[in-house]
Design a protein around this nucleic acid. Structure first.
Lengths: 233, 233
DNA sequence: GGGACGTTATGACGTGGATCATGCCGCGCG
DNA sequence: CGCGCGGCATGATCCACGTCATAACGTCCC
């Protein structure tokens, strides 16, 4: 139970929804689970796209670096979320790096078998298209947010997005089920650590967020939503 | 020749690469070409996604508006480029508006026949996935740019992107084959008209761009590239 | 030919947030 | 156990840009 069956795990991923069991078994057989420590890279921008990956546990950052060394976090992925797929089907190098935001396990499926399977099963491509479409919308949200919103509004929006997808309702409010540093938050919103710290600590004073040992809890989603929209509050 | 055959036109669009002629004819028969004047909307954010569209002539902006009324231009599409496709195959409302940046003609294919065709011809979905993938990369480029680059660098990058895709080599340099106002440029880069004007007019003084009656000409791409990277120059 | 508008242009001014600097805390590790 | 490092926190500056105001110019249209 520490390591459940890979095929079972793949079963629950929308991309493989239409695939019969035996083919999924075969695919799972070619896969390997790999562990990464915090800050370790799964792959780097520019690497050949040899693996289709799925987060099995932990948290993976998809990021790019500016020449000044500043990081931009494009996506923050949790268990069950695939990545690297677009590059694999396109046959291009990865356009961004993937780094473990915490100790993580990644299921890695080699290029060949998944391309072959997708050839036989168009449903896979279809599901992938839908997935990429969703991510394109998310990316466009980010563009809009970066273009017109204040730092505070962007931070609020980022927290809400994470909370919506993965928030766990608890006593004190909706809790993000993973540690999230101010630095990562800053890198997700195109600001600096200092600004992220300032805003979040003000929010803590105002009771809009709580810090539960590195995990953030959001007791007042409505207020956050107002901030994300740039309202007077 | 003023109005060439729609099927022929579709033939050259990568999305329909693998489709046999007769099926393409049938699809084209269901399509209609519609004209739009400057600033006229093809569809609005939130509308039901009833049409898969292709720019036939002119220039279409894909944009979203902030509540303050500020526009964010997500994409600027020219002849041959499809839009609205993701929403159509997903069966969701359009996530952004489409507006004519100049007088344009758009070929509109209704939802039903294209969904049916895609059902029969998985190659279409495959091509769409590749197209969305490319756009996702572009969007991620924008995110990165907005997150870390200066206004000047963002403007330079925007011009370069347009020039790469559509620049026409001419005597005085690479020319953008369509009018582009400072306002649109500002909306594409998340800045204000005034800033866009200031930067571009400084560039004109420095001979990095020329304004040929509303159309921009770029005589010095290397310098622009340096600016886009945020170099000292 | 003269408003009305849209676009480019330029200056003055204020500020959000980046930058730099310094300190505190908690924890893993030698 | 104590040192070092990664993560918060907070203050003091500074400057790139947004904002506001004003103006010149072209062109469309009555």
């Amino acid at each position: 139970m520490a390591e459940s069956d890979p095929a079972e795990f793949l079963r629950d991923i929308p991309v493989f929804a239409g695939v019969p069991n035996d083919e999924l078994q075969a695919l799972a057989a070619s896969a390997r689970a790999e562990s990464y420590r915090v800050r370790e890279y799964v792959f780097m921008e520019g690497d050949a796209a040899d693996w289709f990956c799925v987060v099995r546990s932990g948290r993976i950052k998809i990021l790019r670096q500016s020449r000044a060394g500043k990081e931009v976090v494009l996506e923050l992925l949790g268990p069950g979320e695939p990545f690297g797929g677009v590059a694999v089907i396109e046959g291009r190098p990865y356009p961004a790096s993937a780094q473990a935001a915490q100790a993580s396990v990644v299921l890695k499926i080699p290029r060949e078998p998944i391309v072959a399977l997708a050839e036989r099963r168009p449903a896979i491509i279809r599901e992938m298209a839908l997935m990429i479409g969703r991510r394109l919308r998310d990316a466009h949200d980010s563009v809009k947010s970066l273009a017109v919103d204040s730092v505070e509004a962007r931070l609020a929006a980022a927290l809400l997005r994470l909370a919506e997808r993965e928030g766990a309702p608890g006593p004190g409010g909706l809790a993000l089920p993973f540690p999230l540093t101010r630095q990562t938050l800053a890198d997700m919103t195109g600001t600096t650590v200092e600004s992220a710290i300032r805003v979040v600590s003000r929010w803590q004073k105002d009771g809009i967020v709580r810090d539960d040992g590195g995990r953030l809890v959001l007791p007042d989603l409505d207020e956050l939503r107002a901030l994300a929209e740039g309202e007077p509050g």
